[in-house]
Amino acid sequence: MTIAPPGGTEQGLRRLVTGARSRRIIAVPRPLRRLSGPIALFVLWWLLTSSRQVTPSSFPRIGEVLDTGVSMVRSGELQSAIWASGRRVLIGLSIGVSCGLLVAIAAGITRRGEDLIDSTMQVFKAIPSFSLVPLLIIWLGIYEGPKIVLIALSAAMPIYINTYGGIRNVDDRLVEAGRTLGLNRLALIRHIVVPGALPSFLTGLRFSFANVWLALVVAEQINANSGLGLLLADGRSSFRLDIIVLVVVIYAMLGLLSYAFVRLLERRLLQWRRGFEGE
């Protein structure tokens, strides 16, 4: 701030900072800035484990985990574990999302559907899905069945809640406008209700992705015969901390990957929200 000379036209006024953007010396690109946090975490890990304070028996060194990872990739063990778990998530997620979506649409677009379905879903919402594990084991055995159902259940609920809410929040005035344009019921749903509820559906999908990885970990403890859960169990029984940490890191990476996928979907499908013109 500079003080204006007394008697000048700016006397008594404060000078605002202008041209600040161009004066910035180094502009760090945003993706790089966003990466700085995770990188700092790895650096911290490396620093802590390379000092003498932390022994490899309490937390493995970063290099050790990497070596284990590389050798498990060489043997093909890691890929098959990721595939076995990923397959469960994909199947469970597909079933859960489809069911949640269908039920939400049924409850959302008709009064009768709402009366029949929504109160029932409120009851189901109150049940922690992991408490169903014993029941699922008795009904479906200990192999893929209960794992996939558990994952599907945990995916379906956020989809239902958000999509149903989204449908109910579609602007009534737009539906009215659609009616005056001569749209029939099906066209109203296709052109107004569905796109109007899409942002909420995608929010639900975010929560679903968060839930399914959690459900996967629980599901794979039922009877770890394959997948990342088996690696985790093996690591625990043989005190292989490097394997345990490796699996945890892989869970994190899969989670990040799924968030990136939802973000991509949002960017694609919700273009109109950003108000960006043309392609």
């Binding site: 005035r173 737009l174 009215e176 406008a177 659609g178 052109h191 107004i192 796109p195 109007g196 899409l198 109109w272 929200r273």
Partner: peptide, 9 residues
């Protein structure tokens, strides 16, 4: 109010 569908060009 114009009541345009925001998701349609």
């Amino acid at each position: 109010d114009p009541r345009l569908m925001p998701w349609k060009r």
